[in-house]
């Protein structure tokens, strides 16, 4: 290209960011890995990572994966029909109605979570209404159910947006072509619509699963102090127990999960689904 007099001047222009990325992205990650695989006296060890298999830690991890999976699944089940309805409305780009469904995303994340504290508390809004109607009160606050509810509420827009976009991008004539070739509406859905929206589904799953798996704020606000997720455990290691080595080791475990998720996504994406 002729925008630059030489490769050198382009390199010069990119150098501030290259330096930035090295200092603030690469080196910090290396530090996490370094702390994760060393002990306090500086010797190499896998003990920090292996701690994840100790009962309390493993339980927190299992719980995190379980709740994140449920939340992701619920988000998907809610979002897919919504995406189909919205895309069938043939809206213009940037339509108000679509924005309406992702608007809460712009509200502060903690305030969104806080709303559910207020609603679910023993003497909270929902129970007050139930009492008023002489219905039995519920106690969801400080349960795993409340955490899932908080995750779904917070991350739902992250699922809606990519699914809606991918469904909206499908050429109407592709659907017509399937019908034209003899497929009924159910066959058309399974063989055409669903596979073609797979990129959106996958990115929605990632965008919900990763933050749900690694959150500590939602669980500490809606799950009380008893239900710990892996995020809470890591947070405590850094802010209360000051065991950076163990905290980093557990972070490496999280990164392994993220990496696996990426690989699965890439494989599924290559498995016959193109953009």
């Amino acid at each position: 290209m002729k925008l630059f007099k030489s490769n050198k001047s382009a390199g010069l222009m990119a150098s501030p960011y290259i330096a930035w990325a090295l200092i603030f992205i690469v080196i910090p990650l290396c530090m996490v890995i370094y702390y994760g695989i060393t002990s306090a006296d500086g010797n190499l060890t896998i003990e920090n990572i292996a701690t994840i298999f100790k009962p309390g830690f493993f339980k927190a991890l299992k719980r995190s994966v379980f709740l994140a999976l449920i939340s992701t699944f619920v988000c998907f089940i809610l979002s897919y029909p919504l995406g189909m309805i919205l895309s069938s409305m043939k809206l213009k780009k940037n339509a108000y109605i679509v924005t309406l469904f992702i608007l809460p995303m712009w509200m502060n994340f903690l305030l969104r979570t806080l709303t559910w504290m207020t609603l679910l508390e023993k003497k909270g809004v929902i129970n007050t209404i139930f009492e008023f109607m002489h219905l039995p009160t519920i106690s969801i606050i400080n349960t795993q159910g409340a955490i899932v509810l908080g995750m779904v509420y917070n991350f739902l827009p992250f699922m809606i947006l990519p699914i809606y976009n991918s469904l909206n991008r499908i050429d109407e004539n592709v659907i017509n072509a399937a019908r034209d070739l003899g497929a009924d509406s159910l066959q058309t859905f399974w063989r055409i619509t669903l596979p073609l929206s797979m990129p959106g589904i996958l990115s929605g799953i990632t965008m919900v699963f990763i933050p749900a798996l690694t959150t500590f704020a939602i669980s500490s606000m809606l799950g009380g102090s008893k239900i710990l997720l892996i995020g809470n455990v890591i947070e405590q290691e850094f802010t209360q127990l000051y065991d950076w080595h163990l905290g980093s080791g557990l972070s490496i475990v999280l990164m392994i999960f993220i990496f696996i998720n990426m690989i699965i996504e890439n494989l599924a994406d290559k498995g016959g689904v193109n953009k």
């Binding site: 200092i23 990650l29 530090m31 990763i210 959150t215 995020g231 999280l254 993220i258």
Partner: peptide, 21 residues
Amino acid sequence: GITNIPMINADIVTGISLMLL
């Protein structure tokens, strides 16, 4: 590839790594 790291990585890991730095 490097630029994508903070987007893909969990916020908690990014936060911790910067804190360590």
